[in-house]
Design a protein around this nucleic acid. Structure first.
Length: 600
RNA sequence: GGCCCCAUCGACUAGUGGUUAGGUCACCAGCCUUUCAAGCUGGCAGCACGGGUUCAAGUCCCGUUGGGGUCACCA
């Protein structure tokens, strides 16, 4: 395979390649040469390029594999996050790679908001998303908050475009209207599962009588539009990182919903249409999308749009190698910001996953580097495919290196901004002032606000230290099993998670509602102490709900997780038992509510 | 379970047919130091297994095992 690795001189080759990436020229990287075998109308561009780092190397052939004439296109990449929750490290990771690839090719990095799921939409998370990614150091050239020539960049504002596209597919026979009810679909799937077949939506309407369709349409029956997936046909996709093409037979696929009953598109439709319209050249996204790539390929083909280069990045992992999850790892960018990580440190750490960093003369990798250095040296097609564990220890180390590189002035500025944020201090002042007698006591009194708390590692529980024992005592009241205390905290967390407004006034009733007799039997006093210790690491704090409000939702939730984890790690059986108990209690609550309603 | 992806120290990685398998984190030991960090020196530790191909395999091929993803009107 040809690659300019004889000298890892910073992006020599890339610079020469210039701002334009020959559409498909990545086949020159060798292992994607298989592209050249695809497509009925492939035209050999006959272009040759040389590896500049090896003047004597054989000329490499660049070819273009899909329809039409040779066309060079400026690189355009994108991220398309959903505003449905806290900004995720995975989003940042994929965003970083997309941005770096665009930048090093003089291309454009696009931010597109995937807000087509109206039921999960949360208005506040859109702004948080922008802010968090910007904090990290990501910056996009086009986006909902920035505009651009390809807008609108919010998919919820593009529904006419999707409907128009769906109509095209309807006319060309690539899609059909499906009037099945959700119940019918579920039943069908259940039956197929029972027969040990691939569960699929029924194809009742796939070849329905046009008259019947017209009738349903006239009656205004709710319906979706589905892709008419070919019955038995191999669909082959090419991935920049995997040398073998991936072939999936359409019998593994189902007639994917394209347009939902509420008129909004599904991810599949919206992303394909927008990637085409935005002229995205490289789709760089997480590995979990591989299995739906054939659907996308089918869609690009149905529309007659050129297929972008696909690049599926490895999934970030928990220590046990499962897909990273907030249960087992903090996944919110807010957490890392609030825990005092430097954005450049986090970014550097993320860059290390799948890539070692620039090569060093001793045969190793330079692991500490800046975004600019990454843009200079990183190569998208050289990402390693293992399952990178998001290792907190390594993250801390990388962050520490960046911290140490700060000048004293910078260090002070960063620390001040982190600890004594004016807004936060103003909120804190009325709670703190009555409780201190000198300024010297401020930090001690509110230590849990200013930084991380460390009381909840599993090791802590083994310590003999008296103070720490008290801490655990609060978390786990006398006579309560660790596992029960774990679930108590977890249940609190779940209740709080649903809160959209995070103030002392909204927090109090939510917390109090968990103290009814249906609960594990704790009094308010006990429950509130457990929460207090979990979020503050000690038993003396300003009033609980005010304290929680100031700490902020993500930190409170994160610390409840942390505390729960420190108490116990429930097994599958225990989890099941808990789920069951929750359901039963919910049932009882509903029953007693109904009874109460009946009496009045 | 079907389909798909993946596989180098505990973790992140370098490696693209010929290496004493390199670097970093973590861990251990020593040095430095009033303490703790940091720093320095050293150590522990890896090509999942089995078959091929080849003069030569961590590197290529096949199989096994293991891990993961995915099977929604969520993305």
């Amino acid at each position: 395979m040809l690659r300019s690795n004889t000298s890892f001189l910073p992006g020599k080759e890339l610079r020469l390649r210039g701002a334009f990436c020959l559409y498909g020229s990545l086949s020159a990287y060798g292992h994607v040469a298989a592209y050249g075998h695809e497509g009925p109308t492939r035209v050999d561009a006959g272009l040759e390029s040389r590896d500049p780092s090896r003047p004597d190397s054989a000329p490499r052939r660049a070819s273009r594999w899909h329809e039409g004439r040779l066309m060079s296109k400026p690189v355009r990449t994108r991220i398309a996050p959903s505003p449905t929750g806290d900004p995720h490290v995975g989003t940042a990771y994929i965003g970083l790679v997309n941005m770096v690839h665009a930048r090093q090719n003089g291309g454009t990095f696009v931010f597109r908001l995937d807000d087509t799921d109206r039921s999960r939409y949360r208005a506040d998370s859109e702004e948080t998303l922008f802010r968090s990614l910007r904090w990290l150091g990501l910056d996009w050239d086009e986006g909902p908050d920035k505009g651009g020539d390809y807008g609108p960049y919010r998919q919820s504002e593009r529904t006419e475009i999707y409907v128009e596209h769906v109509n095209r597919l309807l006319e060309s026979g690539h899609a059909y209207r499906c009037f099945c009810t959700p119940e019918e679909i579920d039943a069908h799937r259940a039956q197929l599962r029972a027969e040990k077949k691939t569960p699929r939506a029924p194809r009742t309407w796939r070849d329905a009588d046009p008259a019947a369709v017209k009738e349903q349409l006239a009656a205004g029956t709710p319906h979706v539009v589905r892709l008419r997936v070919p019955l038995e046909e191999d669909v082959t996709i090419h991935d920049l990182l995997r040398k073998d093409p991936i072939t999936i037979n359409t019998r593994e696929l189902q007639d994917q919903v394209l347009l939902k009953a509420d008129g909004y598109p599904t991810y599949h439709l919206a992303s394909v249409v927008d990637d085409a319209l935005f002229e995205i050249t490289h789709i760089v996204r997480a590995e979990e999308w591989i299995s739906s790539a054939p659907i996308h390929k089918l869609l690009f083909d149905a529309f007659g749009y050129p297929m972008p280069v696909l690049c599926h990045m490895p999934l970030l992992r928990n220590a046990d190698k499962s897909k990273i999850s907030k249960r087992k790892n903090p996944t919110s960018l807010l957490h890392y910001k609030e825990a005092g990580f430097l954005p450049e440190g986090l970014l550097n750490f993320l860059a290390l996953l799948g890539w070692g960093g620039p090569k060093t003369p001793d045969g190793g990798n330079q692991e500490i580097f800046s975004l600019d250095e990454m843009i200079e040296h990183f190569r998208l097609d050289n990402v390693s495919l293992g399952s990178p564990v998001f290792d907190q220890a390594k993250l801390r180390h990388v962050n520490a290196e960046h911290l140490r590189a700060l000048t004293p002035e910078e260090f002070v500025a960063r620390t001040q901004a982190y600890m004594f944020d004016k807004e936060r201090m103003l909120a804190l002042a009325p709670l703190l002032a009555p409780r201190v007698e000198t300024l010297g006591e401020v930090c001690e009194r509110a230590d849990f606000v200013f930084g991380e708390i460390h009381h909840f590692t599993p090791e802590t529980r083994k310590l003999k230290d008296k103070n720490l024992r008290t801490v655990i005592a609060g978390l786990q009241p006398a006579g309560v099993e660790p596992l029960d205390a774990h679930f108590a905290l977890r249940e609190i967390r779940e209740a709080l998670e649903g809160l959209t407004e995070w103030t002392a006034e909204t927090l109090e009733p939510t917390c109090r509602s968990l103290t009814n007799e249906d609960w594990v039997g704790w009094k308010a006093k006990t429950l509130f102490m457990a929460i207090r210790v979990a979020i503050a690491g000690k038993q003396e704090t300003p009033p609980l709900f005010e304290t929680m409000a100031i700490l902020g939702k993500s930190r409170v939730l994160g610390r409840l997780d942390q505390a729960a984890r420190a108490l116990a790690e429930p097994g599958k059986k225990a989890l099941k038992r808990w789920e069951k108990s929750k359901a039963e209690r919910a049932g009882r609550r509903a029953a007693s509510a109904a009874e109460a309603a009946g009496e009045t």
